[in-house]
Lab assay of single mutants.
Amino acid sequence: MPVRRGHVAPQNTFLDTIIRKFEGQSRKFIIANARVENCAVIYCNDGFCELCGYSRAEVMQRPCTCDFLHGPRTQRRAAAQIAQALLGAEERKVEIAFYRKDGSCFLCLVDVVPVKNEDGAVIMFILNFEVVMEKDMVGSPAHDTNHRGPPTSWLAPGRAKTFRLKLPALLALTARESSVRSGGAGGAGAPGAVVVDVDLTPAAPSSESLALDEVTAMDNHVAGLGPAEERRALVGPGSPPRSAPGQLPSPRAHSLNPDASGSSCSLARTRSRESCASVRRASSADDIEAMRAGVLPPPPRHASTGAMHPLRSGLLNSTSDSDLVRYRTISKIPQITLNFVDLKGDPFLASPTSDREIIAPKIKERTHNVTEKVTQVLSLGADVLPEYKLQAPRIHRWTILHYSPFKAVWDWLILLLVIYTAVFTPYSAAFLLKETEEGPPATECGYACQPLAVVDLIVDIMFIVDILINFRTTYVNANEEVVSHPGRIAVHYFKGWFLIDMVAAIPFDLLI
């Protein structure tokens, strides 16, 4: 008679799926529990143990900040960024110097990925580790590398530091407007667009060049630039800015003055950032001319202004700041037409079709709590990747769950009947059967004279019903998954307890 339990259901295979997918890609990662103190490590794979030199037993239950890997060259700011990422709910990448158990130093890129439950609360953290440099290539500990984003994938490793954006290309926007319009339909740009040429040739750093990471940081200074100062900065030398009595002219307006920039070969870094931020506020060169004239017309309804409409929906549905990093990277690809469009465009503009998908598509409701890094690593669709929660398995109709209350009560009843059979069957065979043979035949009273025979008949009927119930009862397979398919249940029961239950259900007393 089957006594099969499996009270692990309803099970959740999400954690096993993450481990299996990460292991298949030869990654070095740990999984931490966000619900406990210090976000203790609950799993670390073999790749991480080989990377740091510690065994799994030495890593388990330690804080996922990996303070046991810190050393003299470990930056405090990087460690603080990892700790801050564990307090938030967004994906974050941090470069930090770690030390192995043998004392060797290596520069590592740590990717902190939160995993949320159905309520939107962070319950786990996945920390992925990628070695960037070994100890002989690690720089000085005073050099802070965590304020910069990861290198873009479309640049060669040897040319990542030679990417320079020439400031004269930004200063000569109005001069290039006529050349853009003359391109017409034969050019790649839309009317009114501004073409910015980027020099990728390796050259020595000069005062006129600005690194790509500095251009990325310009967006942080746009908020500090007032509207009046932006307007004066875009007017140009024809209309000098008016300053109040006793007030000095704005240095932001002076930063885009061609006369002032041409007199000296070098520009201050602050002026460069502010000038680029001011130019980015204009949607095209037409807006710059309109600002000089004193009238700013409404933005025209053409394809170039609607190019950012799908980007707005993608940004609203993005799951991490990696989408913004990807957008900034692609927006700086050289030799393309940049349409400086305000994100607050007309909502009635139709979304044009684009061959290049900048932001990841909208994630469906079932995966809105899973970050983009987890979705990318697992390579699963929205119909396959579940949320991290207890999910009731989908069972067929008329199927009994093996952990249901009805099955528990039924098993206790069958257990009592088995005990009765084990006690009274030998007793009936030894004593009652002998008395029946010696006594007179009682054929007239039937079952009324033999109450134990009636009980034995009921017990046999219950055993037959138990066999039928076992054909529709779920079970737990070797992978700790609840199986509810009727065919698989029948095959599993035939290979197991079916023969024993059938022999126990045969009414031998009635056959004798």
Rank of each mutant, 00 (worst) to 15 (best):
G224P: 06
G226M: 06
F22M: 10
G47A: 11
I42Q: 01
L171H: 09
L167T: 15
Q75R: 13
L225Y: 03
S255P: 10
S320W: 11
V374M: 07
R100E: 01
G236Q: 01
V8E: 12
M218C: 15
E130P: 01
P63V: 03
T13S: 08
I126N: 01
V8P: 07
P241M: 12
R281G: 13
L165A: 15
S255F: 06
D342W: 01
A142I: 09
R356K: 15
V295L: 15
V3F: 13
H143Y: 14
G183E: 05
R252D: 15
G187R: 06
E214K: 05
E37S: 09
E130S: 06
D119A: 06
L155F: 06
R292T: 04
L86E: 01
P245A: 12
E274H: 05
V115T: 05
S351I: 14
E177Y: 06
S318Q: 14
R27V: 07
P249E: 05
T270L: 05
E274S: 14
A185C: 09
L155G: 10
L127K: 01
F348S: 07
T74A: 01
A156V: 14
S266P: 05
A175V: 01
F14N: 05
R5S: 09
T13F: 08
E230C: 09
S261D: 12
I96N: 02
T162K: 12
L225N: 12
R326Q: 09
A282L: 12
K344E: 12
N128E: 13
D46M: 05
R273E: 09
V215F: 06
A169N: 15
A285D: 14
S239Q: 14
L210W: 15
R77P: 15
A303T: 14
T270C: 12
P386S: 03
E118R: 06
C49Y: 01
C265H: 08
P300F: 01
S320H: 06
R271P: 14
R280F: 15
D342S: 12
F98A: 01
D213C: 06
I19D: 01
V138P: 08
T13M: 14
L315E: 15
I126K: 01
Q75N: 15
L165S: 14
D321K: 09
A175Q: 15
V195S: 05
A228K: 11
V131F: 06
I333H: 14
F14S: 07
V279S: 14
A34H: 05
Y327I: 08
W154L: 13
E208F: 04
V370C: 10
S284F: 07
L173W: 14
R56N: 01
G246D: 04
K362L: 11
I123S: 13
L173R: 13
E37I: 06
A9H: 15
G53A: 01
G345N: 01
C44K: 01
G306T: 05
P63E: 14
G158K: 07
L87N: 13
G24W: 07
V384P: 08
S283A: 08
K116P: 12
R176E: 06
H368S: 12
F163K: 15
A193W: 01
N339D: 15
P352E: 04
A350P: 11
T152R: 14
I333F: 03
A293N: 15
V370K: 10
A360T: 12
A203S: 06
F348V: 11
R148T: 12
E37P: 12
F106D: 01
P386E: 04
D323A: 12
H143W: 14
I288M: 10
E58F: 06
H302V: 11
S275M: 12
S255H: 09
E90V: 13
K135T: 05
E214Y: 11
R73M: 06
T371I: 13
T174Q: 14
L315M: 08
V384K: 05
A79H: 13
A185M: 14
F125N: 12
A57L: 07
F48V: 01
R35N: 08
A156N: 03
R281V: 11
S55L: 02
S140Q: 14
S250G: 10
E95C: 07
L338M: 15
G183K: 11
C39M: 08
A293G: 10
C44D: 01
L378T: 02
L311V: 12
C276F: 04
D119R: 06
R252K: 13
A307H: 13
A350N: 08
D321T: 05
E134F: 03
F129S: 01
E130V: 11
A228C: 05
T329C: 08
A260S: 07
K373T: 13
C276N: 14
G314W: 05
A223H: 14
S322L: 07
R56Q: 04
A89N: 14
K135Q: 07
L385R: 14
L385P: 10
N128K: 10
V295N: 07
G224V: 13
V94H: 03
L296C: 07
L127C: 06
R269C: 14
L343N: 12
L86P: 01
P347T: 14
P205S: 14
V113S: 14
S322T: 15
G120V: 06
I333K: 11
N12G: 15
E289R: 08
A169W: 15
E118P: 08
K364Y: 03
L267W: 11
A40W: 05
D46V: 05
R4I: 14
R328W: 08
A142H: 05
F48H: 01
A282S: 11
V341E: 03
P298L: 07
D67F: 05
I359H: 11
H70Q: 07
A244E: 14
F106Y: 03
V196M: 15
Q11H: 13
S207R: 15
E230M: 07
H368I: 11
R301V: 14
A190G: 09
G6F: 12
S351K: 12
V3S: 14
A203D: 05
H147F: 04
M60A: 01
C39H: 14
S209M: 05
D286M: 06
V222Q: 06
M137Q: 15
C276Q: 14
C52Q: 01
L167M: 15
P347E: 11
Q11A: 15
H147I: 01
L343G: 15
M124V: 12
G192H: 05
D102Q: 05
C265S: 14
A175G: 15
V374T: 04
G236F: 15
V138Y: 06
V325L: 14
L349D: 07
A285N: 15
V341P: 15
P114R: 04
E130L: 03
L267I: 02
Q247S: 15
R73V: 09
A172S: 09
